Computed example of a mutant assay.
Amino acid sequence: MRGVKKENLPEKLCAVCQRPFTWRKKWERVWDQVLYCSEGCRKKKQRRTPD
Rank of each mutant, 00 (worst) to 15 (best):
K44C: 01
V34Q: 00
P50F: 13
T49C: 08
R47S: 08
C14P: 08
K44G: 07
R29M: 13
V30D: 15
V30C: 14
V4F: 07
V34D: 02
V34Y: 00
W31Y: 12
R47D: 06
C37H: 04
C41E: 04
P10Y: 04
K5E: 09
Q46E: 06
C14L: 09
Q33S: 07
P50N: 11
P50I: 10
V34G: 02
T22P: 08
G40D: 02
P20F: 14
K26C: 03
K25V: 01
C37S: 06
E39H: 05
E7G: 12
C14S: 10
K44H: 09
Q33K: 02
C17N: 13
W31A: 05
C17T: 13
R24G: 03
V30S: 12
K26D: 00
V16M: 13
N8Q: 12
R47C: 08
W31R: 06
L13P: 08
E39A: 06
K44Y: 07
R24M: 07
D32I: 09
W27N: 03
V30W: 10
L9N: 12
R48T: 14
T22F: 10
G3N: 11
Q46M: 03
K6I: 07
P10C: 08
E7D: 15
K25M: 07
P20M: 14
K43N: 06
R24S: 02
N8G: 09
D32S: 15
Y36V: 05
V34T: 02
E7V: 12
R19C: 14
P50A: 11
A15D: 09
W23E: 05
E7A: 15
K6D: 08
N8D: 13
P50S: 10
R47P: 05
L35I: 04
W23R: 00
E11I: 13
W31E: 03
K43P: 01
L9S: 12
P50T: 13
Q46P: 00
Q33P: 01
P50C: 08
L9C: 12
V16D: 11
Q18E: 12
K12Y: 00
G3H: 11
L9E: 12
T49S: 09
W31K: 02
E7H: 13
V4H: 01
P50G: 11
Y36L: 04
D51W: 14
Q33W: 06
M1R: 11
K12Q: 04
K12V: 01
P10W: 02
V16K: 09
A15I: 08
K45P: 02
R2A: 11
D51Y: 11
V30L: 15
V16A: 13
C14G: 10
Q46D: 01
E39W: 04
E7M: 15
P20Q: 15
T49Q: 13
R2V: 03
R24H: 01
P50Y: 10
E11S: 14
C37F: 00
S38W: 00
K44E: 07
L35P: 00
C37N: 05
Q46K: 08
E28P: 00
R42S: 02
E39Q: 03
K44V: 04
Q33E: 05
L9G: 11
Y36N: 05
E11R: 13
P50E: 11
C17I: 11
T22M: 07
Q46G: 03
C14M: 09
R48I: 14
K26F: 04
V30A: 14
C14W: 07
